Simulated assay, not measured.
Amino acid sequence: MKRVLTYGTFDLLHWGHIRLLKRAKALGDYLIVAASTDEFVTSGKDDRRPYHDHRTRCKMLEAVRHVDLVVPERSWEQKVDDIRRYHVDTVVMGSNWEGSQRFEYLRDYCEVVYLPRTEGISTRKIRRDLLADAVTDLGTPDHEPPPVTSQMAQLDRSA
């Protein structure tokens, strides 16, 4: 059995993530996804917390048919231990990591494959687009709160 491992935050799960997971699974028989913990994500230079907490992101990943096992990614240093613990044959990452010493040293332990990113989609782009839409909506003269329906008013009174 050929085992494949990939790492990521997988926040705001989108088509680019699904495509990466599908292609990673196609390289082997068993796909392990190491999902970055909230603490790991916020320990770096970018202190932005993921939208979904770690547990929710893991549940979303477990629901993807290409994923066989989800484990936590707590640090950069755990990768060799993961390769040994899960008997990994191949580590797969997006092409944005190609040449990075964060993954290149793993070639001493297994195959390392970089897959092309999906054009036009990323979590960062989704965040920017949603923010731009929100700012645009707030700046329009017709931006008003939704009307209160009789059902909503009844709920408010019963609370």
Rank of each mutant, 00 (worst) to 15 (best):
D46L: 09
D68C: 05
K59Y: 13
V64F: 09
T90E: 05
Y105H: 12
T149F: 04
L138H: 11
T56Y: 13
P116K: 10
R48P: 06
L61M: 01
R74L: 04
Q101F: 13
G99W: 09
T149M: 01
S43I: 04
L27K: 05
T56C: 09
D81M: 06
S150G: 08
L130K: 10
M60A: 15
Q151C: 08
V80C: 02
H87Q: 14
T118M: 12
L31E: 00
F40W: 04
L69F: 07
D133R: 15
L31K: 05
V113Q: 04
R117S: 14
D46I: 10
V71I: 15
S122H: 03
E104K: 06
D108K: 15
A34M: 02
I121P: 08
K45T: 11
C58G: 09
K59C: 12
T42E: 14
R85L: 03
E73C: 03
R49V: 11
D29Y: 03
R127D: 04
D137S: 12
R55T: 15
S100Y: 13
Y109E: 00
R48K: 12
D129N: 14
H54E: 11
M60P: 10
V70S: 00
Y30H: 13
R49M: 10
D129Y: 08
Y105E: 02
E62K: 11
V112R: 00
R85Y: 00
V91W: 02
V88S: 05
V148H: 11
R65S: 12
Y105V: 01
H87C: 07
V88H: 07
Q151V: 11
D89R: 07
R49S: 14
L69I: 09
R48S: 13
W76I: 08
R65D: 13
M60Q: 12
M60C: 11
E119T: 13
D47L: 14
T90L: 03
A26T: 09
D53F: 06
R55K: 15
P146K: 08
R107H: 02
V41T: 09
D133G: 10
D82P: 01
D68I: 01
M93G: 07
I32V: 15
S95P: 03
P147H: 06
R102A: 15
Y51S: 11
L131K: 13
I83G: 02
G120H: 07
L61D: 00
E144D: 14
P50E: 01
V67N: 00
Q101L: 13
L31P: 00
R49A: 15
F103G: 06
Y30C: 01
G44L: 04
Q151R: 15
L138S: 12
R117Q: 15
S150L: 14
W97E: 08
G44K: 07
A134I: 10
S95Y: 08
P141M: 07
R128T: 14
G44N: 08
R128G: 05
I126K: 05
R49T: 12
Y86D: 04
R127E: 10
K45E: 12
R127K: 12
Y86N: 04
T136D: 15
I126G: 03
T149Y: 02
E111Y: 03
V67L: 01
